[in-house]
């Protein structure tokens, strides 16, 4: 059984799917993942498409059974039918995108439907539905059919739906996918407020700034395996062999950028407002700055230095090296 301070404990979780092509080997979606999540944390699961993020979330939210390994959520084994029935009252899930709602029903009717399925007492239901509509800023559109909602409104009503049973753990599978920056920021603010209120959040995302802003801890997975784990700064430290170099030049350094690309380094040049150019790239090894200073010198180097890697650079380094 999971220890009580952790609300989620995944132990050597593995999930395979049969191939649709006869004779082909099984597809391994999750390959021996282990991690623990503390109560009230925002825990990130990061990884490229097909890495196994959604599969992991589906296993933890009781939508999929693991092929092997164990996962305990709020102390309940997600592969134990009886335990799962009780667990479902205490968790909920939001999938990214526009699906998961009845479009011919209004926002309020959708929330009432799902609150009935969660057995929320009738007296409580009205108060809770109105409160959630208020929380996600949809009070005025409460009685409008969901088919008339914008994408952002649909995503907000999604989140309200998932909060209908006041879950202790909320699984968010790419909740800001396809949203404009303003709406994404609103959703991130809502996630932060939920966490401040004591809800444990499991978040999958492609957006590194989102993970950096929200997550207390995270795992980075690639091809079903954990390739990095810890807090944002721990993950950055994990790539201590990587140096992030920033060069500012007076002239367009495209030729040098191309030379870096030929060496397999991911560099790009950005034109600054003051007419200068900035190049940033991550490099492994112990080349020092001298070599790059010489490489960029034809373009009149204004400054050159080593900076702390961003989470994105750490992520790309970990995923690329897996």
């Amino acid at each position: 059984m999971a220890s009580p301070e952790y609300v989620i404990a995944a132990e050597d979780l593995r999930r395979t799917f049969k191939s649709f092509v006869p004779g082909s080997p099984e597809k391994v979606a999750v390959d021996g993942i282990s991690f623990k999540v503390g109560r009230g944390e925002i825990y990130g699961i990061l990884g490229p498409n097909g890495a196994g993020k959604t599969t992991t979330i589906k296993i933890l939210s009781t939508l999929l059974s693991p092929t092997s390994g164990k996962a305990y959520v709020l102390g309940a084994d997600v592969d134990d039918e009886k335990a799962v029935r009780a667990l479902r009252r205490r968790i909920n899930m939001v999938s990214g995108g526009e699906k998961g709602l009845y479009y011919r029903l209004s926002g309020r009717q959708n929330l009432e439907f799902f609150s009935d399925l969660h057995g929320i007492p009738k007296r409580e239901q009205k108060r809770r539905v109105s409160g959630l509509l208020e929380t996600v800023g949809l009070s005025e559109a409460a009685d409008v059919k969901v088919e008339n909602y914008s994408r952002g409104m649909k995503q907000r009503i999604h989140i309200a739906r998932a909060l209908i049973n006041d879950p202790e753990i909320l699984f968010l599978d790419e909740p800001t996918i396809g949203l404009d920056p303003e709406m994404s920021r609103e959703v991130r603010g809502l996630i932060r407020r939920l966490s401040d209120g004591g809800t444990t959040i499991i978040l999958t995302t492609h957006y590194m700034f989102e993970a950096e802003e929200l997550c207390d801890e995270m795992i980075i997975i690639s091809r079903g395996r954990v390739v990095g784990r810890g807090t944002v700064s721990e993950i950055k430290e994990a790539i201590s062999d990587v140096s992030c170099i920033r060069v500012v030049t007076e002239e367009d350094p495209s030729a040098a950028v191309e030379a870096l690309a030929a060496e397999g380094l991911d560099a790009s040049s950005t034109a600054l407002l003051n007419g200068r150019f900035a190049v940033r790239f991550a490099t492994r090894g112990d080349d020092g700055l001298g070599r790059y200073e010489r490489m960029f010198s034809p373009f009149r180097v204004k400054s050159i230095g080593i900076e702390e890697p961003t989470l994105e650079e750490a992520y790309l380094s970990l995923v690329g090296g897996s």
Partner: peptide, 11 residues
């Protein structure tokens, strides 16, 4: 419509 999953994970 993607509503089967929320129904299935409801109690």
């Amino acid at each position: 419509n993607g509503t089967l999953e929320p129904i299935l994970i409801s109690p």
